[in-house]
Structure formats: C-alpha cells, structure tokens
C-alpha cells in the first residue's frame, strides 16, 4: 500500500461529504474502526487501510437535541444516536425517520441503516434510518 492510500481524518470526512462512507481497518488484525483512531483498539497496531461497511447496525443510545450550538440552531430539534455497526465498531450520527416528538417510542437495539443528511449548515452528516 502506498502512502496516498493511507487513511487520514481529512479523507474520512471527505468520504462522508461525498456520501461514500469508508471506515478504517487495522492491517494487522482486521478490526474495523470508525471514527478514525491512530491506534487499533483491538491489537494496538498503527497500520490502517480503508474498508467499506455494510452500513447496517443497531441503535445503542440516542437523544433529541432541542438546544443546539449556533451552527445547528436552524435544524433543531434533531436526533443524534450511537450506532453499533454489524462490523462491531460504534459510531455517532444523526437519526432520520424518527419522530422528534416521540423519542419514548424509539427502542434501543432497533435495526438501522446508513444514510446521509444535508444540514442547513451546508455540511453532510453521517445519518442512520430505520432498516
């Protein structure tokens, strides 16, 4: 693998912006890692390569943001959740397709699938919707 294909945080963010999510993968033990880490949580290796994921997973936590930072003010209320991908890594993203008025109806463990959301801030967010 040449240096240009070595994963970087900048390129990771760019992949999300282009709606083409890529995760890091540990060259030594194969662990899938996202968001990026300089060191593999499983084996300690610092050799990473890109991988793609199925995009499916389950919801492990969520909240509905009502009071948002300046940049996201116009989007509130919105869901943010933590998703455990089927590849094992956990990632934070927006949730789509859930009613912000009824968070009590959302169950942890729900199956979700990768999607994207275009914020009014002009950025593209990693998002997940019901599978």
């Amino acid at each position: 693998m040449n240096d240009e294909s070595k994963p970087t945080v900048e390129a990771y963010k760019q992949y999300i912006e282009s709606e083409d999510f890529h995760a890091y993968k540990c060259v030594d033990c194969g662990a899938v890692i996202a968001p990026p880490s300089g060191t593999c949580y499983a084996c300690g290796s610092n050799k990473m390569e890109w991988t793609t994921v199925k995009g499916t997973g389950k919801l492990v936590a969520f909240t509905v943001i009502h009071i948002a930072p300046e940049a996201f003010k116009a989007e509130a209320p919105y869901y943010v959740g933590i998703i455990e991908l089927d590849e094992g890594t956990r990632i934070t993203g927006r949730l789509k397709g859930f009613d912000t008025n009824h968070p009590e109806e959302v169950s942890l463990g729900s199956r979700v699938v990768l999607d994207y959301e275009h914020g009014e801030s002009g950025n593209t967010y990693l998002a997940f919707r019901p599978e």
Binding site: K13, A61, F62, T63, V64, I65, I67, A68, P69, A71, F72, E75, Y78, V80, G81, I82, T92, G93, R94, L108, G119, N123, Y125, L126
Partner: peptide, 15 residues
C-alpha cells in the same frame, strides 16, 4: 460535527 451537545452526551447516558 453532527450536532451533539453536552446535554446530548448526558442525554444519551441517561437513555
């Protein structure tokens, strides 16, 4: 970057 806030962090811990 996805709009998580501090109340949001603890909201998730609460959930």
């Amino acid at each position: 970057a996805v709009g998580l806030t501090f109340p949001g962090v603890f909201g998730m811990a609460a959930v």
